[in-house]
Design a protein around this nucleic acid. Structure first.
Lengths: 136, 136
DNA sequence: CTAAATTAGTCGCATCTGCAACTATCTTAA
DNA sequence: TTAAGATAGTTGCAGATGCGACTAATTTAG
């Protein structure tokens, strides 16, 4: 959608890469690839590849986890944090632009309604074994 | 999303194929591939391939347009109409299921809010030369 | 009328991304 | 303790789809 142009065209990030960046930046703390996969509902192979690319671009780094040597702790590098901080205001501005056709009250209502649906869908999905997300 | 499972798993239709079927079924009248491409915001090559598949499955048929021999008039076959009529109630039921967490009043509000955003986005998009649609 | 520009549709190509198999590691149960 | 099962992450593969070039037909401008 309109938002993705902001990070894709301007920063050369594809969608999974943005998801990794956003998750790490939002949490501001190390986490596993599996965690990112879970909370963005993106297949772990896709996240794996996005992490590889971001490591090559020195946006993300990973360190071994001494307690579980299967997984890695992922976190943003200095450059990664800078990139994240640079992107956030742009995206918020874009979001405001998109929602500018609604009043403050309407925006609040919309968030509330979508929240309800999301909550209800999450139940359904976990109940019947995670659907693949697809648009329309 | 949850809806697509209905036509994908049950009827072997992928998303572009469903879009063709839905457009032709909804209009209940012949139209060009370009028209479908426009109103579903799907690239014409994708629509072209979907139409090919649907023709092989005898769901869609096309006839030459005497007035413009570049384009074809597309329409559903008898089987196509049957399939469409069979799918509609299933999809509506699914939609009701998804929206069942909202009251009637809330559903109306949601439709209204989304309508406003869509309208506003359409203007923006045509102004800056059709973004590619992408989810988050 | 003719040449350039536009439009409908097709096709090759590249990219994206999910699936499933695989390795390595960890956990659980007998 | 050991064997079976679960889990994290990687990779080969295949399907889906957008892009751009191409052909054929039509429209527009000079």
């Amino acid at each position: 959608m309109a938002l993705s142009g902001e990070y894709q065209e301007r920063y050369g990030l594809d969608i999974p890469e943005w998801r990794v960046l956003a998750t790490l930046g939002f949490r501001n703390d190390a986490c596993s690839a599996q965690y990112i996969s879970d909370c963005t509902r993106t297949h772990k192979s896709t996240i794996s590849r996005a992490v590889m690319t971001l490591m090559q671009r020195q946006i993300v780094e990973r360190v071994e986890n001494a307690h579980d040597r299967r997984e890695f702790r992922l976190r943003l590098t200095k450059e990664g944090k800078t990139l994240y901080q640079e992107l956030i205001p742009r995206l918020l501005r874009k979001e405001r632009e998109i929602l500018s056709c609604l009043t403050a009250q309407e925006r609040k209502e919309l968030a509330c309604l979508l929240g309800k649906i999301e909550k209800s869908l999450d139940l359904v999905q976990t109940r019947q074994e995670a659907d693949t997300e697809q648009a329309y």
